[in-house]
Simulated scan of single mutants.
Amino acid sequence: MADQAALTGQDAGKAPQSLDEVMLAMDVVDTLRHQENLVSRELGEEVRDAQLLQRLRDIYRGQGIEVPDRILLEGVRALKEQRFAYTPPGPSFSRTVARAWINRGRVGRTLLTIAALLGLGWSAYQFGVVEPARQRAAQEQARTERERTDLAERLPAALEQGHEDVLREAQLPAARERADQILADGKAAIERKDAEGARQAINNLEALRADLRREYILRIVSRPGEPTGIWRVPPRNPAGRNYYLIVEPVAPDGRILSLPVTSEEDGQTVTTSKWGVRVSEATAMQVQQDKNDDGIVQRNRLGEKRRGYLDVDYQMPVLGGAILRW
Rank of each mutant, 00 (worst) to 15 (best):
V67L: 12
D313R: 13
A188D: 12
I59L: 15
D20F: 06
T144S: 14
R61V: 12
L212N: 08
A210E: 09
L205F: 07
A157D: 09
G108K: 11
E81A: 15
A284I: 01
A50N: 06
L208M: 07
L24D: 08
Q4W: 15
A251V: 12
G90D: 13
E21R: 14
Q315F: 02
R301N: 10
R136L: 06
R301C: 05
A50M: 14
L324K: 04
R148Y: 05
A170P: 07
E169V: 08
A50Y: 04
G105L: 13
Q161W: 08
E42N: 09
D49E: 08
T271D: 11
V221H: 05
N242S: 09
N292A: 15
R77F: 07
G44D: 13
V76S: 02
V76R: 14
I246P: 00
E46Q: 12
K80G: 11
R232E: 08
P91I: 12
T110R: 12
T87W: 09
P227R: 01
L79N: 11
G267I: 13
R106P: 00
R214S: 09
N300C: 01
A157C: 00
V39M: 08
K274A: 11
L53C: 04
R192P: 00
A201C: 07
N300I: 00
L167G: 03
G128N: 04
Y314T: 02
A207W: 08
P238A: 07
E74P: 00
V270K: 13
T269G: 04
E74W: 10
G108Y: 08
E196P: 01
A179S: 06
P156M: 02
V261P: 05
D30A: 15
K291G: 00
R178C: 02
R241E: 04
L151T: 03
L7V: 12
V312M: 02
I190Q: 10
L56E: 01
N204R: 15
T271E: 13
V28N: 02
Q286R: 10
R199T: 11
K193V: 02
A198Q: 06
G308P: 06
D180M: 13
G295M: 02
E140R: 15
R48C: 04
L117M: 14
T31F: 15
G13M: 15
A115P: 03
Y244H: 08
S280A: 09
I59M: 10
T262Q: 15
L112S: 10
V277T: 07
A322G: 03
G186N: 08
L72I: 07
V279M: 04
N203T: 03
E196T: 11
L52I: 03
N103W: 05
T31V: 14
F93C: 00
E226F: 05
R255N: 10
T271W: 01
V166I: 12
G186Y: 05
N300M: 02
I230L: 06
I114N: 00
G62Q: 04
A251Y: 09
E248G: 04
R241M: 09
I182W: 01
R219S: 11
